[in-house]
Every structure is written in C-alpha cells, then in structure tokens.
Nucleic acid binder design. Structure first.
Lengths: 338, 338
DNA sequence: TTGTGCACCGAAAACGTTTTCGTGTTAAAA
DNA sequence: TTTTAACACGAAAACGTTTTCGGTGCACAA
C-alpha cells in the first residue's frame, strides 16, 4: 500500500528540483517541453495529487465552508444543506456539516473547533438553546476574527451579518387570512415557545390577521408547545376543549398531529376542521389528507446563503454593508382545507 | 477587524522566540512559570487559537472524515449522518458531507477532490449511477493510497473494506412471512431496478419467503420501478390490474404511494390490502394509516460506520482484516397490516 | 573577445505549527 | 576555582506546496 507521493519524491526520482516539478505540473513555459512531459508522465503514473492541506496553508484559505444546524433529521434543514452544497461545489468549495443538537454548548464548541482555520466561513441557523439564552458572543467572536457568517431561518438581530430568511409574519398572516377567507370563524394557533424567533413571528402574523378581520385574539386558542415529544396529548386536549373550525400550525409536525387528534375525536378534516401547516415537507405531502402548507423552499434558502457567503469570500475588500435576503413563500393548497 | 493572531506575532510582541510561545501555551515545564503566564495571558487576550491547517500539515492528519451519500433529503441518510456525526465529534473529528446526487461522475469528482489530503477517511453509500455502472476504480484508488473507506447500506463486494449493512434479504423475508402469517395469499412486491443492491436483496428475500410457503412467484406481481418520480401512475395501474391482498414495498415512498392508490381505487387498508414498507422514516409514522415497516436504524449504522473508521485511523498497524457489521432490523407493526 | 538576451532551471522564502537539539546562564558540588 | 547539572530559552527542521528571484549556459551580435 503505497502512500501518497509528494513533489519532493518526484523531484528526487527524476533528479530535478522541486520547483521544476511544480512548474512542470502547472505547465509553466519556464520549463522545457521535454522536462514537462517527463514530469507529467511520471506524476500521472504515480497518481500525484497536490496536497490540499499544504495548499490551504499557503493560500490562507481552505475552500471549505461550515454549516451549523440544530439537527439534520429534519426535512427543511436537509433541503437547505442540499442547496448550499450545490452552489458550494459549483464554486469549488466543500461543505462541512455540524449539528448543534439544539444546544448552546454544542454550538459554541463546534464553532470554536472550526474557527481555528479549518474553514473559510460559516452558514448557520441558531439552536434553540442559543436563542433562549440570547448569548451570541461566540458568533461575534468569529466575525471579529474576519470570518464571514451567514445566518438563515433562525437568526438574531443582535449580530450584524448577511442573512437569509422568509417573512414569517406575513406568511403566517396570509395563511390565517386564507382560513378566514374560506369561512372559518374560530381559528386556533399551535405554536412553539416564544424564544424560537420564527415561532414568535408566526404567532405575530396570526394575531395580526385576526385583528385585521375584526376577530378577537383569545389566549385560550393559542397553544404553545414546549415539549415536542409529547405534543400529541396536549394537542388532543386542546382540540377537545376548544370547538374550533380552523387551525394554523407553525410546523408540519403540529399540523399532522392535530389532524390525527381531530379524527380521533370524530372530527372530519377539512369538513369540520381546516388545518394549515408551515414548511412544505414530506409529511404534508404524504399524509392523508395531504396538508395545505406555507411552503418554505429550503433549497433556495441554502443556495442564497451559499452565494452570499462565497461572494463575501471572493471579494476581499471588506464590505460593511450586510444584506438580508427574504425568500418568497407561497401557500400550497391541498386537502386539509376547504 | 483584526485578523487571526499567530505564534510568530505573539513572539515578536513579547520579544521571545516562537518556540517559547508554543511551549508556554502547551504548558511545558521547560519554560519558567513567569514566561508561561505572560504568554498565556497575552494569548488569551488576543484570543489565540492554533491554526488547524498548520497542525494538519504537520501531523499529517486532518481529524476530519468525509461522508458521501446519494442524497441528504432522505430520512434514512439523514439519520446515518446524525449517527456518524455523534461519534465523530466525541472523538474530536469533524464531518464533511458530500452528495453524489446518485451520479457516478459526481461521486468520482467528490472523492478525488477530498482525497487530496483534506480528510483522513471516507464513509460512503454508493450512488445508483455507480452501482449500475459497476465501476469502482475511484474507490480502489483512494484505498490504495492508504486512505480507509467504510461502506454502508449500498455496498459492493468488489471492494475490500469495512462495511455496515443490514441483512436485506432476511429482513424482506421476515416481512413477507409476516404478511403470509396474517393470512394474505396473493402478495405483490414493489421494488427498484436490480442494480440497486439493496433492492435486489430485498427482492430475493420476497421470493424466498414465497417459495418457503409453497406459493408461486409470479412475475406479474413484481413491479420494478425505474422512474421514481412517476411511480404513482405505475403503482395505481399495477394495483388495478392485479387483485392482490398484500404488498411488500422496498421503501417508504412506494408503500405510501401504494396505499394512496389503493384507497383511490376503493380498497381499504388494511382490510382489503395489507402493506408493509421498508425503512422506518417519517412517512411511515405519520401517514394515515400509519405504515407497518421494516425498521432500519440509520443512527446505529452511522455510529458503527464511524467507529470502524476511527478505529482504523487510530491504529496505524494496518490490519488487513476487514469486518462487515450487520445491524439488526425489526418489524414495526402499525395500522397498514391486519 | 566581450557583451546581450534567452531558455531553462534551482534556491529559498513563505504559510503556522511542534519538537529536537543545542547553548548560554546560574547555582550547587567538587 | 573549576566542574557539573539544572534551568530557561532559541535555532532550525519538518510537513507540502507555490512563487519570486537569481543564476547558469549558450547562441548570437558587436
């Protein structure tokens, strides 16, 4: 099992200098055609590939970008990665993925680990832990060291950097308006706790839509789920106690769970109860009935984030103007609404 | 925006040598406590972090492993990554993710890109393109260069390396036996084309189960899907034309599509038709009715693969014995079977 | 013969570390 | 006083590249 061959070894073998080998391989006219061919043939024979690490050290860039997300077993984040990966590869970048598992500590550790020169820049979505803690010093730190950061979806206004988001509030508003338009009167909301930024914005949108239509916002119609693993019982209880005819859920899981609970309680969807979810994932498409959702295109978000980051990496003149891109959402009408 | 600080700069600033700085930071007793403290304080102040790239170059190892999978927007692969990531991080390794998009060419390009010293080893699942082409020279090449490779799920016997798989044939056999045990007589199979190794093994299992129970294998009951995007029409046609009472589908998507088609045709699941899927993902759990599946634990597969790889990386004595681990599957009984 | 230019090649620095080995200083031992 | 040993530190090599800057040697013109 022969190890990787280096310039030095080729040079020795062919009895020329390292520089000559290097130049020959890059086809420099400085070297005679004879020598060039000889070197190239030898290099090919031994399957020479320049050592990326040495190149990274020399060029002071690694051509790899890190993505930090709360979890990967989640359709939305998986699509975002897919988007990032596609434009990254097109531009000769590698993608390194780290999971924060929704934990502040793991997010910090990961970032510090990577910030030590392994990568050129970050693309990230905040963990719940970080959002609830409100501590972003680790992010500010890498930015201060001159490493660009792009945030997407779960962001914070406390950090100045490029961002890619959807207009959560407006999207939620549209969804609720749609329910109202379809004739639903008593519309409930199933959401997350407030520190998850997107949950908060979507809740705001829900309330605004109601007010605009002169409906009163009743606290008992707003269900805030803390423990996602046991949401089923909570949601069932909520539906049983409130005689609602429309539900806006801030994610797929809540939506499908609500539908299951409703059917268990003898309600028909959408005849007795309309449901709209958020994030157009696998569940919405394949559940029965399929679920009307606010579609949030992760691939596009990922692509935009990667473009922003790579642009910043390739233009060394440091631009102090940060842009936040808002990607469109749209309602995908399916069977869970009238 | 101050750039990253280096040993050299610290040395200059403090008017000592680079070696002294390095040793101080590693707390070498070779350096007086005075100097050590001075250096450490300064380093902390300027937030010094050793440059990973330089370390990688010096140590000839990068502490990062690459995962190459066909696609990430797929629950099974996402879980595998999650498993890999967890044990990798525990051992101080980073994970780089590359998608082959089921294409042979992209798989080759990715591997060549990474093989240039960026990583210490590979964990991979073959793309359909590679499996249909049967060309594995790119994999053999990195192995020859002394870089360990672990394959999982979609593997080939043409390459000698560590592997993590499930016993697809037995698992399929068990599933079909379960259908037979539940009283189904005419059992169909929805599978992929043969070059996908797992598809082939599962098909073998299906046939063996039938034979063992003295049922005849009828070709018209075996539906091989080529184009996954249009499977819905094919499956509907298949169900309409064959009066079957049990279906074994080699993945979730085929299973849920079959259920939808059956209901469309007025068949009740599971009363008129029982369905078993493969790979316990989101769909199986949340569809209505929820789907009985062969559960294939991606997290465990990922963990085992990562362990195998890291073990090999840390033990330099090259062991020519490769192991292939078989992880257990089990049937998760849900609503789509009697 | 001497200068000029060109074609070809090598030495060495640089990227940022770690580590081995050497060296100067000082205090203790002879 | 001289030798020894401990102590504190620095020089330099090494990891594998790329690139700049200087050489050679040679043909050709002056």
């Amino acid at each position: 099992m022969k190890k990787k061959i280096t310039l030095k070894q080729i040079a020795k073998e062919l009895d020329v200098s390292i520089s000559t080998v290097s130049k020959s391989l890059r086809n420099s006219t400085e070297i005679s055609e004879d020598t060039r061919e000889k070197v190239q043939a030898f290099a090919k024979l031994y399957n020479f590939k320049p050592n990326n690490i040495a190149l990274s050290l020399k060029n002071r860039k690694t051509k790899t970008i890190a993505v930090i997300i709360p979890e990967i077993v989640h359709h939305f984040f998986a699509t975002v990665i897919s988007g990032i990966e596609s434009v990254a590869n097109e531009n000769g970048y590698n993608v390194i993925v780290c999971l924060s598992d929704e934990s502040f500590d793991k997010e910090v550790i990961n970032m510090e680990m990577l910030a030590g020169g392994s990568i050129d820049g970050f693309i990230m979505s905040l963990s719940k832990g970080t959002q609830s803690k409100g501590d972003f010093h680790h992010i500010q730190e890498v930015i201060n060291q001159g490493m660009p950061v792009v945030m997407f979806d779960r962001i914070t206004n406390d950090i100045f950097c490029d961002k890619v988001i959807i207009d959560d509030k407006t999207a939620a508003q549209d969804a609720v308006n749609y329910l109202i338009f379809k004739g639903e009167k008593k519309i409930g909301l199933i959401t997350t706790v407030d520190y998850v930024s997107v949950g908060k914005y979507r809740t705001d949108g829900y309330m605004q839509a109601l007010r605009q239509n002169n409906l009163i916002v009743k606290d008992e119609l707003i269900l805030k789920i803390e423990d996602i693993d046991n949401c089923a019982i909570e949601i069932e209880k909520y539906i049983k106690e409130n005689d609602i005819d429309g539900i806006f859920a801030v994610n797929e899981l809540f939506a499908v769970t609500a539908i299951k609970a409703a059917r268990k309680l003898g309600k028909r969807v959408p005849e007795d109860l309309s449901v709209i979810g958020f994030t157009d994932g696998i569940i919405s498409n394949y559940s029965t009935p399929s679920i009307t959702t606010v579609s949030q295109d992760g691939v596009i978000m990922g692509q935009k984030a990667a473009k922003l980051l790579i642009d910043r990496l390739e233009n060394d003149e440091e631009d102090e103007f940060y842009t936040t891109e808002i990607v469109d959402t749209h309602l995908v009408e399916r069977e869970s609404t009238k």
